[in-house]
Design a protein around this nucleic acid. Structure first.
Lengths: 234, 234
DNA sequence: GAGTGGTCTAGACCACGGG
DNA sequence: CCGTGGTCTAGACCACTCG
């Protein structure tokens, strides 16, 4: 045998635990030994076992509770991680030149739902931006965005004609929290015209709201061209 | 001042670092001090700083490289985490009773793309399952799944009439890797009939492929009822 | 109450990769 | 080369929560 002696890294321990689960030595629902015992068995420090088990718990494979111990998850809530690139990078990844066209930019009164989402004071306007993202000269995604001017100082003065609002925000109001929502919608006439498809075409839509702490900064609605796919890895 | 003395937990350190970034004391692109220096400043062990910075790096806020040091990400690739519940739980979260109806179940020759996705030997059949998930008696999602029998022993014998194939797989071939893909499609006639909508309606579709290590186990295509939304938190 | 995971410490060695 | 982050150790104390 030419096996290299197993390194006692936390990754190796995670792999070993995962193998025991996969091979059903520890089926779903099983209580597994506590950290101290596993550390003894693997001949490593408890902290190393902890690192491995914590990682598995974060990915939903294990269920850990103080005093109750660690058990293999029964019906694991699988977690998938989505990396959200800038549309510029998304287009670049397709090997196509990226283009951006500002369609409109105005300080105006938002519709009620947007007004509420941005938590604006009564009778306050918001910055409304509509823009088209292009891939190789053809429409890629239509962006309809409202920005709370009070939460994004400088946005009113910013030149959004060459840089997308999203990229401006990323650089000037970074590291915010937010929610995403995906859905499928039928293209309305205006959207269809911009994306160059027939009205009624099924489009992939992303609704995104962004907060800086608790203060809403922006809400955006992005309609992607027909056929768009969003990929994730579990 | 009634400030409680700042606990030197890794969470507190993470919060402090995040605050410095938010307040632009460390704007995007900045190199921040190395772990040893931060440990000195915060009066804690380097491992504690490491834990905090590693967490921020995992969420895309920091960019860490050996020798190069740690810098605030320029254009942070935001990462969103999606918890993928069983459809049963998804329906239950709506406060509606869940129902499941097996439409068809057969061992048959899959179409070429599925055959390739499952990495089947030539002229090998696969288990094809079509099923409808119901919420409060009305269609919620249509599932079209192919299972590689060699990779899911017992699937051929399993009773899929009351338990969805996905739930069976979760319990009998758990903790696999996989890819997800979301898109918007127009309902074809058959799908529209099952979901009770008009053909051409925009539907949210999830394509999922699952591997056990490197061996494909199953591919599934899930078409959700009109209006379905998928929510994520950044 | 007591057992479990969660965390911190002080120190050490190592792997990577920029200069 | 050599500074940086990545990891391991041995020990300790703490917080939570189950029984």
């Amino acid at each position: 045998m030419t096996d290299t002696p197993p390194p006692r890294t936390w990754q190796a321990i995670r792999a070993e635990v995962l193998a025991r689960i996969r091979h059903r030595r520890w089926p779903p629902g099983t209580m597994i030994p506590n950290e101290a015992d596993l550390a003894l068995e693997f001949g490593c420090a408890r902290a190393t076992v902890n690192r491995a088990l914590r990682d598995l718990a974060e990915s939903g494979v294990l269920d850990r509770r103080r005093k109750a111990g660690t058990r293999v998850a029964e019906a694991p809530v699988r977690r998938a991680v989505l990396s959200i690139p800038l549309i510029r990078d998304e287009v670049a990844a397709l090997g196509q030149p990226y283009g951006y066209a500002l369609l409109s930019r105005a300080l105006e009164s938002p519709p009620a739902p947007v007004h509420a989402s941005l938590a604006l004071p009564p009778d306050t306007d918001a910055l409304h931006i509509r823009a088209l993202h292009l891939a190789g000269g053809t429409p890629f995604a239509l962006e309809d965005r409202w920005i709370n001017p009070a939460a994004a100082p400088g946005a009113l003065e910013a030149d959004m004609t060459t840089l997308s609002a999203n990229e401006w925000l990323v650089r000037h109001a970074p590291f915010t929290e937010g929610r995403l929502s995906f859905s499928a919608i039928a293209a309305d006439a205006a959207t269809a015209a911009q994306l160059g498809c027939a009205p009624g075409t099924a489009l992939f839509r992303l609704d995104r709201s962004t907060l800086d702490g608790t203060r809403p900064v922006t809400v955006a609605q992005i309609s992607y061209r027909p056929g768009y796919r969003l990929d994730m890895v579990i």
